[in-house]
Structures are given as C-alpha cells and as structure tokens.
Design a protein around this nucleic acid. Structure first.
Lengths: 186, 186
DNA sequence: AGGAAAGTAGAGTGATCGCTCTACTTTCTG
DNA sequence: CAGAAAGTAGAGCGATCACTCTACTTTCCT
C-alpha cells in the first residue's frame, strides 16, 4: 500500500514535469509513460485516462507550489509581498512555460473536471493574499488590494516568459509596493 | 485575386474564433473546416498545414487587437491607461479564454514559427505602452513603468478568467494609477 | 512458505488524425 | 465566350492516438 502511494506520487511528479516542459498537446500517453519510466498498465492503473493524468499533474503542482510559497518568511509589508518574491525564485527553478493551470484550462475548455481543479487552485491562491493582508492590516478592507496582488502574481508569471524573470519580478514588486503605499500599508 | 484574399481573410476570422472558443487541442482540421464553411481543399490551399492555420489565426488576431486598441482616444494620463480600458472592453466582447498567443505558445513550445509570431506580437504590445508614456512624459525614462503596465495588461487578461472582467479591470486600473503616481505622472 | 497485490513488456485494436486526391462546378476576366 | 482560377464534395491513406489485453515476474505481508 505504501509502495502504491509512492509509485503514484512519483508518476505524478514526472507527469507534471513533462506537461510543464512540453505542453499538453504535444505529449502522447506513450511519451508520458516513457518519461515516468513505468509500464503502460501501471500508468493506467493510477491514472485511468489521459485526462486523469492531466488532473494528477495539476494536483501535484498545486501541492508543490503551495509548499514552495510557504517556504521562507518575512515580516511587515514584506509578508504580503513574499508570495511574489517566492514566485520569482520559482520561475528561476522550473522551466517557465507560464501557468500550468491556465495552460490546461486553455487547452481543454470543455473539461469540467480540469476547470474545477484550476478554479480551486486559483481561489486558494487569491485567498493567500487575503490572509497575508489581514495579518498585516487587521480589520482593514483589503479585498481590492488582494485582487491587485493576485493580478500581479498572474501577470508576473506570464510576463516572465516574454520579458525575462528579473524584469517581470521587478515590475511586479514595484507595482505591488506602489499599490500598498497608496493604501497606507507599509 | 480579390476573391482569394477575402476568402483567406474570412477563413482566418473563423479560425481565430474557433481556436479562441475551443482552444487548440480539441479542434481537428475537420472541425475547423466546418466552422469556416469551406471545402477541405480550399482550407488547405490558403493554410497548407494545421500549424499554418494556427499562425494564420494568430496573425489575424494580432491585426484585430491592435485595431481595437487604436479605437477611442484619451488625453493626459488616460492616454497611457487607455490600452487597459480597451482591453477591459475587449474582454467583454469576445469569449474570454485568456490570451490566444500565450495559449498557443503553451501548447506548441517546440514550434519556432508560432513562437516568433507570439514574441513579435507581445514586443509590439509592450512598445505600445512605451510610445504612449513617451508622449505623456517626453524625455523621461519610462522603461520600468512600461514594463509594469505591460505586466498589468497580461495579468488582467488572465485574472479576468478567474475573478471576472470588472474585478480584474478595476484591479489593473488601480495598480496602474498607483504606479504612475509613484513616478509623478498624473 | 504462500498467496495477493503490484509491477514489467509489449502486441493489438478501433478510432481519429492530418492531409491528399479525383471529379466536378462556379466565378472572374480579357 | 473561352479559358483560367477558385471554389465544392467527399472518399481514401498512412500514421498516430488513447486504451486494452495477455503472459509473466517481483514485492510485500501474514
């Protein structure tokens, strides 16, 4: 049972990496199988369809990314800005092909299962900014600020592909600081 | 000759709409043919491969979008913010499935031809902000601000899919105004 | 030790894919 | 009006796809 769990998790890791590197469209099941280095039967045992493989990869990235965001720590305003800093580091670590969730949503707009995973992930991500703002400015209405920070997070992911990680990170940080300053959070 | 051009353009319009609505992966050539309401032979005459159809759709959207951005007018700071306003209106007009260019880039990361079209489009879009800033604040170094506005443009497109058009537009406008104010452009 | 569970290798299947081709009709132009 | 150019309809082709199945081996847990 323990072996089963670890095998599934290991396959999910490879699925996530494969999809992140090569996109969803260009990857057939056989290519995914080879990347995960398992038999076709085992692959289908854990992920009974190609769509399940996509969802498995997304769920794995969901865990990976929130774990990553939780790393490190900062105080004061930097506590709010920290997710953007962590995103900047993340973009340096992994192959940057944009947001895996939005890419999946774009490719399979008719899949309710995929849409649900994406919406859930993004909702919790937006909430992350709410929680951090609430800690730094308790009681204050920070909904607009949270929406802005979330938008900067999404924009930074995409802009990094087009203008480079450093440039995008700096732009997002500057905009975030300006938005916080405008609301007297410093 | 005139008929040929208009047929090709009409097909490109339908290709763009199809890809925008259903994504790239779920659309086979036969589905595209049906949408454009032409024979398979004619479709392949104008776009000799599926990749050419994708590129044709992107080029068509490139023209459509820049034409759209050129619409309307504003003065002072609003001249700089205008593309974001126009994007907000655009997102209300078309089916919002994110940025067609970034979606294509995500699905076909190995296609140099697609990557070239995307990079070119985004470079000219980034330049649009530079030009507008140059007009409002002549001589000033506005590279950082342009990068920020471009990032907000990209973020707004994505965030609109997840949090709604109005919310995303307002967040982007607030952030843009704060960034401009921080650089004393008003 | 022994049986269940989980793994491997890889051939096979029907469906679908991108694309070509034949045969014919319509539309524009000199 | 004649010929070229551009269109339609749709069968057919080889390749590839997602997925299944058979036959066998290894690993884990009493």
């Amino acid at each position: 049972m323990c072996a089963m769990t670890s095998t599934k998790s290991r396959i999910a890791t490879e699925l996530e990496r494969s999809f992140a590197r090569q996109g969803f469209a260009e990857q057939g099941v056989e290519a995914l199988r080879a990347e995960a280095d398992v038999s076709l039967r085992t692959l289908y045992k854990h992920f009974p369809s190609r769509e399940a493989m996509i969802i498995g990869a997304l769920e794995h990235r969901d865990r990976t990314y929130f774990d990553w965001l939780a790393g490190g720590a900062a105080e004061g305003v930097d506590h709010v800005l920290h997710p953007l800093v962590r995103l900047g580091d993340w973009l340096g670590e992994v192959a940057n092909t944009g947001c895996l969730f939005l890419n999946a949503l774009a490719e399979y707009p008719d899949s309710a299962a995929i849409a649900a995973v994406v919406k859930d992930h993004k909702a919790r991500l937006a909430d992350e900014f709410r929680l951090r703002l609430e800690r730094v400015a308790p009681g204050q209405d920070t909904r607009d600020l949270a929406a802005t920070l979330f938008l900067l997070h999404e924009g930074m992911t995409q802009a990094a592909r087009l203008q480079g990680r450093e440039r995008a990170t700096e732009a997002a940080m500057r905009a975030a600081r300006a938005a916080l300053a405008a609301e007297d959070i410093r």
